[in-house]
Design a protein around this nucleic acid. Structure first.
Lengths: 420, 420
DNA sequence: TATAGTATTGAATCCGAGC
DNA sequence: CGCTCGGATTCAATACTAT
């Protein structure tokens, strides 16, 4: 979607309501068969193990309010029954859960919306800061998508074909052989039969790789557990049309409502927390949407930035098996393998840089990181510039290597640091 | 992993057993506390809606055998109880399920292995053929990972850092502020405190993008629902060590056992189907592992191939909103939108190509695909070469467009084909 | 040997016909 | 009117055959 199509709806003609109350109570006052789409993102059932602070260091009312599973399940079931009532026949519900409760919640969805109305388990996946753990890094959440009936409103979004798809061939006519297996139809003369027909692309998958809201993202409004705009945007686009009504019974910081407003849907948001409602109201007045760099340009785009215009840098790092570091003038990276159990810092010296100055900076940088050893590699744009020409500063713990010798890095390190 | 490290174990000194029986019966004869890792991949609960044929066009015994949910649940629960018994205290179970039953199965895992021993919901995601559907394209399956106790054996696999990671900063010491929030430690002089420590990379995530076993893959053995080697390889590496014993109670075509054998683990495979057991035994004698192109080179690797060295081609396709086609000398793609309800073929003419010859080839190519219209775009490496210079062949259904005019494509098509 | 072009095919899913 | 059954359609690969 373009930024333009969002802007069109940044006026207040779109009717929306934000209500500060217990959603179980408020839902009773919403007319039956009036809602097109519900997105539910209740507090996760962490049993109070997580303390969530807002920007003013107050523990938010957001933390769970349930003592045990049964209590939680009764609350969810009640909520679902009321949501089922207010939904139109063509309506859908999206229920956001994490690993703690997803199986219980789906059980309840089966009971209230029925197994046959299960549409998808959407996997929202993201990369995140890693934590040490005796299991795999948890980096997804599930969103259950059920419709009220089989006759639900849906706009399938189509994406580009995979680059491996043999699109050309896919146009060939198909039939079945005597065993009922699919084969290509043949013309009478034996040629394969082809036919031209417009191709739309591949339907959107149920696994969505959407970046986790960056802790520093402008979109953040200082309320915990804020969901990315993109996630809600997709859901709203898929299961509603312009002018439809979107409901979020636990609206938190209001991402759903912002997305609904910007996409020209009516919205109703409910939350029991007053601070949530205040933030939401504020946010609806002046919505900020940040498209992450990853979304806009793909993950690969960063690599150019890291390595700058210096393509040789990338090559060197791959040859010496090192990891790059960025945003640091005097330090370019580290060797992947430790040397004498110590980390080795890497600096690539461009021909415009002054050796003495750079060495000083590099020494400081690695000292700051408790690195014992460092390697400075000379890299210019010509063979001559790839050799150190000036006199080298005398440093105990730093090796200087000409570009042509980077294969010898381990050996050189070994010779120089034998004394340690 | 390298091919070498696999080959080391291609001998028969690794002890393994393959048993053709009902796993519920066989499990009673396996000693308690003797198994390190169980992988369970039972038939999905499709309620007979899917007919699965093997390569000999026989309906396999693999198709489900359960009339209803309760029947299925009892079977799974019995299986889990027996598996729990034979597992060592340090052992783990991986249970493979799809959307039909994942929530029921996790419920049973909670009952038998306990909620507290849940480790991960692994999402196996892949691209595959798509179908028209009134929901999102289902393209993942879930694998539940539970351990028998908290003291389970695990080898965390580390992957490369994302290119966006600020590795440098990651090394800074961390502490907590007075509100219990994580902050970077400061030295007395106010500088941030850093420490050098080799970083291993990011722990493996719980979302695994592993290509679906291609219908033509050499790895295929002609039994339906064969899982990719890579999937089982990961599981076995994470939750067992060399010499450990791996059990697969519904081993099917035996991928688990092959992976176990090649990784130097002992294995026990059970399946009720005789044909499955025969295939497995055969396969264990001469295992074939195929690494997919995608795995080896990444998905992006193809795009270079499609567009060849001609970067301009990519740019043109994006400007005129067209889809590329490959492995076809005379045809480069199709417009995304149909014209007069007909598909429009695209050919980009390089300066080395002969116009008359190329036009002939192009005409043949689009005729074969029932395309009524075609567009030939002139593209060279200089402004001069971007203009058609020779006399153009006279073709009713083909438009010739100079590179500089590609914005006018719709208009030109309109004028030329008004007569149709 | 490399590239162009052809042949498959799958734990899918819809739709419409036939009961 | 609710079933089931079969035909048509689907794309992401990879193997093979012919030049």
């Amino acid at each position: 979607m373009t930024q333009e199509s969002i802007k069109n709806y940044q006026d207040d003609s779109i009717s929306g309501r934000v209500i500060n109350d217990d959603c179980l109570i408020t839902l009773d006052s919403i007319p039956e068969d009036s809602i097109d789409l519900v997105y539910v993102d209740p507090p996760f059932f962490t049993q109070g193990k997580q303390k969530i602070l807002n920007k003013n260091n107050e523990i938010t009312a957001y933390d769970d309010i349930w003592d045990n599973k049964d209590h939680y399940m009764i609350w969810v079931k009640n909520l679902l029954i009321k949501l089922h009532k207010v939904l139109k026949e063509t309506g859908s519900v999206y229920f956001h859960c994490d690993w703690r409760t997803s199986h219980w919640i789906r059980q309840l969805l089966d009971e209230v919306f029925f197994y046959k109305n299960f549409r998808n388990e959407i996997i929202w996946t993201y990369k995140r800061w890693s934590t040490s753990s005796n299991s795999l890094q948890k980096s997804h959440q599930s969103i259950y998508f059920y419709s009220k009936t089989n006759n639900h409103k849906i706009n399938i979004i189509y994406e580009n074909y995979s680059s491996m798809t043999n699109l050309d061939q896919n146009w060939q006519g198909r039939g079945r052989d005597c065993h009922g297996r699919s084969i290509y139809k043949k013309k009478e003369n034996g040629e394969t039969e082809s036919y031209g027909k417009q191709k739309k692309g591949v339907p959107l998958r149920d696994v969505w790789d959407i970046p986790y809201l960056n802790p520093k993202a402008k979109e953040r409004v200082g309320y915990p557990n804020q969901k990315p705009f993109e996630l809600l945007e997709r859901i709203i686009r898929i299961s509603s049309a312009e002018g439809d009504t979107v409901l979020d019974p636990c609206c938190g910081s209001g991402t759903t409502l912002v997305a609904a407003k910007l996409l020209g849907r009516k919205y109703i948001g409910i939350d029991i927390s007053e601070s949530a409602i205040n933030i939401t109201k504020q946010r609806l007045k002046n919505p900020v949407v940040s498209r992450s760099c990853v979304t806009l340009n793909g993950r690969k785009s960063y690599s150019k930035w890291i390595y700058g215009n210096n393509k040789r840098k990338k090559e060197i790092f791959s040859k010496i098996n090192a990891k790059p570091v960025y945003r640091n003038k005097h330090l370019d990276g580290f060797l992947n393998h430790s040397f004498n159990d110590e980390v080795v810092g890497i600096k690539i010296l461009d021909n415009i840089e002054n050796i003495t100055e750079s060495t000083e900076g590099f020494k400081k940088a690695i000292r700051k990181r408790n690195c014992k050893y460092g390697v400075i590699i000379k890299n210019g744009s010509s063979i001559q510039q790839n050799l150190f020409s000036d006199e080298l500063p005398n440093c105990d713990n730093i090796v200087y290597i000409n570009y042509g010798e980077i294969g010898l890095i381990e050996e050189k390190l070994g010779v120089l640091f034998k004394k340690f």
